[in-house]
Amino acid sequence: MTSLLRPCVWLVLLLAASFGMTSLRPLFAALFPTLERPVYLQEGFAALLLAHLELVAVSGVLAGIIGIAIGVAVTRPWGAAYRGLAETLSAAGQTFPPVAVLAIAVPSMGFGPQPAVLALLLYGLLPVVQNTIAGLTQVPPAVLDAATGLGFSPFRRLWRVELPLAAPLILTGLRVSVIITIGTAALASTVGVTTLGSPILLGLSAENTAYVLQGAVLIGLLALAVDAMFDAALTLFFAGAGRPAGGTS
């Protein structure tokens, strides 16, 4: 039960903070006495949170699907030649700053969510690709030999044997990817997408530190809540099933 407690605590804190931020006006007024508007009111914080989550979900699901597909493809006999390329490209995707991706993508794709999703997707791909490859390559060769020798088709072997055995590592990759996307998604507000980064950007340009703090606290809470949920899911799913990490005896 303790594994479920942590995500619940963070979730309650997150919801309380997003719905209750405006009622903390006296607190922010006291903290920042020089500010005329100590609480961000352009959009409700709950709406910002929802928009932020939507952007993260779209990019995260895409990074997951594409990342797992790439990881699977380059661990098949026909795709093995591209493994180095895939690892290099996904690493490059992460070293390339998302701000630069936005700057390059906006002229061709226009303002709005598309360039933001593209930038976040590229940024979040690496951990998924790397962990999918790591998870699939640590499946013991004897298990693969037995599966093939008993008459599993390549697809069935992948679906029934390789992916389930790689699942803990793949989920860990997804978790890292989603957590860094939650933080990075704030940048999407620079190309006109409403996110929890909107108060931060406005706060930076209007020298309103309270706005920056409000956006940052919510992003931090969201990251912690989602991380705790992944943790709980991994614990429940794998420890509960009594699944060993690897080889047979």
């Binding site: 013991p140 004897a142 298990v143 037995a146 020798g149 044997v161 060993p244 047979t248």
Partner: peptide, 21 residues
């Protein structure tokens, strides 16, 4: 077809290769 053939033939290896999950 390889899969059809293999399902008609038992296969045992030294490292056993039981499906750990």
């Amino acid at each position: 077809a390889p899969e059809q053939l293999r399902r008609r033939i038992g296969y045992v290896i030294q490292s056993v290769g039981l499906f750990p999950h």
